[in-house]
Design a protein around this nucleic acid. Sequence first.
DNA 1: CTCCATATAAAGAAGATCTGAATATAGACG
DNA 2: CGTCTATATTCAGATCTTCTTTATATGGAG
Lengths: 115, 115
Amino acid sequence: MREPTFWILTALATEPRHGYALIQEADRLSDGRVKLQAGTLYAALDRLVDEGLVQPDREEIVRGRARRYYRLTDDGATALDAEVARLQAGVNTANAQLSARRFGLGQATAGLVIA
Amino acid sequence: MREPTFWILTALATEPRHGYALIQEADRLSDGRVKLQAGTLYAALDRLVDEGLVQPDREEIVRGRARRYYRLTDDGATALDAEVARLQAGVNTANAQLSARRFGLGQATAGLVIA
DNA sequence: CTCCATATAAAGAAGATCTGAATATAGACG
DNA sequence: CGTCTATATTCAGATCTTCTTTATATGGAG
């Protein structure tokens, strides 16, 4: 699962949202780090609907513009759960490796003497 | 950063390794979940050297075959560190969203009465 | 003698994302 | 009154990484 997809599912986890709202929610949830591109978003939504991770929810017309709402399916929540576990495992492994690296290189600290 | 790249940097964090050893190390570190493809690996190594995250270390000839070792640069370690922090932030956010979802849906537990 | 593990390389396809532009309307600002 | 910005979706084309497949080479196991 790629990052934009991950953030779309994450943003949809709490409640149904329409495309444009997802762009803002991903931005908010990530403290401004994730800027979903419109092209990426709508293509990903179509794909996620095909895969059954997301479902069309309802459609509203606000100020002449259609808002198409999507919601996370149970399969989608399960997939996001699995992805989170996978990512956490990778993060833990990388942290352990980086710690070992620092241990190997930072030999000065091992010889630190309290004077 | 994509996953194969992430695992290459993670596997290189502790000591220099050659390509084939990286395939095995990524497999081991991920408990068999990550199978680096040879095509992916060697292409990624070239790219990472270009980007300065990895450096050629030394070359050995074992049983007529060349082993080209690579090691993680300080920039590479910094990049992996940053990636780990980024991933952890995403994981935390997704977990919070998934918890909120469960809270919203699993209303039965809120009304649980000790009889 | 063939199969398997070791070790790297390179070409072509696949697939998600990115870039940029198009379309449409309401409200704000000057 | 006209322009700019925010809202909202769509599409075409490019990019980039990864995947697949194939090729090459050799030592050891069966």
